[in-house]
Write a protein that binds this DNA or RNA. Structure first.
Lengths: 164, 164
DNA sequence: TCGGATACTGAGCACTTTGCTCACTCTCGA
DNA sequence: TCGAGAGTGAGCAAAGTGCTCAGTATCCGA
């Protein structure tokens, strides 16, 4: 099996095992998936070097840091100001992530806040940014499906070979 | 300093250190933040037990699994069907996360797909779900700000004591 | 002002894990 | 038939873990 740069079934098994116990040692993982320690170590190294694992920051819960409120702000931007607006958003600590959406002038901004007042302030800050034409703030009331990847991993384990 | 259940400056330092090198050993972290190994171990344990760290799944890049496309689908739901719709969405592997938004009948659904056709299929699947009245699909063209938590961590380190 | 709880330290110790190397096998695919 | 890629098992020194213990400092409430 020539490794194509994409995660294969065995990698998916490892990731799934890690999902269940992120602190598992290489030895434990090896036993879990029925491979030698050497192999597991090599695969983990490959996964990391390939960039299949993104920053640890994603695992940090903003609520634990004192930011229990989450909101998504849709921002409509003056066409030519996109870069400047992105830079301005990057400077706001409460902005966790910004997606550029199809439509080219719409941004989806993921923000967190300490409380309602705080959120109001941040939303105002976004709206006041030069190049921002309009914003719509939607507060997250509850998480109906928590972020998960397991179903796709399980599919990768079963499906196995025919990627794409 | 009575620990209130919220992350303090030292915890934030640890998390920041982990962000920079997620595989760092407890010993390395202790040296990094200038505390004893014992203390670091205790704090890490507390962080975990307190739930400040969410699932490892968040660190898995869907692109590496063969799902390079990301989209956000806004779903409007018949009022009384919310639970059923949530359950249906939970059953779709490509649905990574679902947020219930203010407005009570709007959901924000985070999906990934193998390609445009795949996304089309998934969007259709969402729309076909019983209880779903209307959907709007927005494709993510680019990430203008990658998910990050460092700015808030740094603020926690500086700010220090007055939480809230 | 005393007592208890909490946080931190440094030391110690047995045990496990890591990181690395080496030689060897197997199985594709050219 | 050859070579690259993937996996195995063994081995070894060094490092890290998990845990306990005794001692100190500090804050808080009674």
């Amino acid at each position: 099996m020539r490794n194509t740069g994409e995660v294969d079934a065995v990698d998916a098994q490892l990731l799934l095992a890690l999902t269940e116990s992120p602190r598992a040692t290489v030895l434990a993982l090896a036993e879990r998936v029925g491979l030698s320690r050497n192999t597991v170590q090599a695969r983990l190294a490959r996964l990391e070097e390939r960039g299949a694992l993104s920053s640890f920051e994603r695992r940090i819960d903003p609520a634990a840091l004192g930011y229990p409120l989450t909101a998504f702000v849709t921002v409509q931007v003056t066409q030519r100001m996109l870069t400047e607006v992105a830079a301005a958003l990057d400077g706001v600590p409460e902005v966790l992530e910004v997606h550029g959406l199809s439509g080219q002038t719409d941004l989806l901004v993921h923000v967190v806040a300490r409380d309602a007042d705080d959120l109001y302030r941040i939303a105002g800050q976004l709206l006041a940014t030069e190049g921002v034409e309009r914003t719509t703030t939607a507060l997250v009331m509850r998480k109906l499906v928590e972020h998960r990847m397991a179903p796709l991993l399980e599919r990768a384990i079963r499906g196995g070979h025919d990627e794409g």
